[in-house]
Design a protein around this nucleic acid. Structure first.
Lengths: 187, 187, 187, 187
DNA sequence: AATGAATGAGTCTTCATTCAT
DNA sequence: GATGAATGAAGACTCATTCAT
């Protein structure tokens, strides 16, 4: 039941936004009562926290798998990280969108842990770019921190406009963005 | 008074979010009463509509000035458009952030006009890139629609993380992003 | 309206207790809506605070009138204070009972001011007894602080059992208690 | 387990009040579940009833022991009854406080039996005073019913203010009150 | 003897909105 | 132009209670 609530909440939060989704909305779909919700979650915010925490934790784990692979060039690592983010639109679209949109609704105590992991993910990308620079794969003199924000901008913004049933496939999109980004920073 | 309400609302919407800001919050700061608010605006959503409308209209106008300049190459037009977007963070930060974050709260009737202008802005960029391709400034075979979303991703995402009092200036940031984007798509 | 809400609340708090009385109960009787309640009071506890504050402030004022009268002996001052408390059962029964019963529901921030006045009232009695001892009206060696608690016990407890339409009048009760107390402590 | 629940409930009821204490609060401390509670008690009110019933039954028994002692004067009987009540603050503080404060939460059906015993306790005191009057220990013409309420006021009120770790001991307090009361009513 | 899941009615509170003045 | 009073619908959350296991 806890899982059913989480799943349903993600769908509703994505569709209507966190603020616009009431507990009643959630439990109505599941045909249970509000009491049930509060049996599993201490508050609406706690639920959002769980969603965020699950998502970023999983994302970080998958990023780590890429980084741990010693055989990959930095270009390849960066490509795969971009692919990771973009393919999540199709695979975990709602979770991902909720994750990127509703941070604001996490109060200070809760947000710290999430924010730390979020920063970790970003810093991992920055490190990859840095090493790419040192190893001559990317241009010298890049502001790698700003470049990293640029990369995240491209990928994360796609959560705003990408329609899974639109005219372009995820694979094509990944290719286009990888191409644009690598050309943008390589020697 | 109408202007004071708008200005104050933008500040509060940016700080706390649209949903989390009550009419009471707004009028409290201005030391007037809720009745006053409803004298000038028919609803909370109408106010948000006005803010969005003002912002996108102004943005479009300034974009048009760039596009109308016959002496500029497409690269230059694109650079200036990027500059336009990024400098707004510093100059119109709150408005811009409200614009990019709170679209969701506009109901269908209101959103059409805004959306049309928003799309227009994007299509203007796409057209610039297209012409750049035709004139040999940018690579052949680019999916210019996706590239455009990528460019917007880079610029708009900066509204999420840029701190005006941080270690990097707007001008430096513009330079970095123009460089990254142009390198990413030029011949 | 604010006054009507206060008056009605006192009646209901006395009859059913603070916890058992809902805002709905209060506004139902007045045939207004809950919104109205919250237009005048920021919370249920705030209302209780107001009730307590009004009561103790008024009680202190009337006590002060007695103490300021230079012509009275300490015995007389004490008699009049006892009369003050006991007659309030008839005159302000509900307020008084709410005051003596529902202190517990005031959270820490609110209670301080009330508590201070409450203590002031008690200390005023203690001072009267003390002076009575010094002037030879009351016995030497009395623990005047404990005696004061005893006096308050007698009077305040009457709020628990006294029935205005019972077989004994307030005036008779005052006489009995004044007699008992004075005999208990005089030379 | 039943006893553990009762003991723990008394502590919590005293600290937070009956209404403010949830079944969850009680079972949390005992590290059992709500089901367990309802295995032993049919309702929250039933539990409160049990607590009241236990307390007053025990109090009555101990009072009876005093009254049955043929060798005691009425003064002595009264003294011992006062001592009985006041020492309970130290010995059974929480139970006693719950008993004196939370009567209100007993609904009509339950309260009858308790009330009868409560009245019995009071009437036993009244009878002692009456006999004291007849035997010339106390003054003629006393309204013994009101005097009894006065005595109970003094003792019961001490449950409101007495701090076990304060500057006065129970024994001293008993002495002071016995003195005050006896002087107040004796020949 | 005890649990864990679920209920449902109720609680306080918020807030956009209306309207007579 | 602006106010102050009032509304009413909705929101998050609590909690005593039930019951199959």
């Amino acid at each position: 039941m806890k899982e059913k609530i989480t799943t349903q909440s993600i769908i509703l939060f994505e569709k209507k936004g966190f603020s616009q989704t009431s507990i009643q909305d959630i439990v109505d779909v599941l045909e249970v009562t509000k009491g049930t919700f509060y049996y599993y979650f201490s508050s609406k915010e706690q639920l959002l926290m769980d969603i965020h925490s699950d998502y970023i934790t999983n994302l970080l784990e998958r990023q780590q798998l890429i980084l741990d692979n010693q055989n990959l060039s930095q270009k390849e690592k960066l490509s795969r990280t971009i692919r990771l983010l973009v393919t999540d639109i199709a695979d975990k679209g709602p979770s991902a969108r909720v994750f990127f949109r509703e941070v604001r609704h996490l109060a200070n105590e809760n947000i710290e842990n999430i924010k730390k992991k979020r920063d970790q993910f970003r810093l991992n990308i920055e490190k990859t770019v840095n090493e790419g620079v040192q190893q001559g794969e990317f241009r010298k003199g890049l502001r790698t921190d700003m470049i990293t924000f640029g990369i995240l901008g491209i990928t994360n913004w796609s959560y705003q406009w990408y329609k899974p049933d639109g005219e372009i496939s995820i694979d094509e999109l990944v290719e286009i963005y990888v191409d644009m980004i690598l050309k943008g920073i390589e020697q």
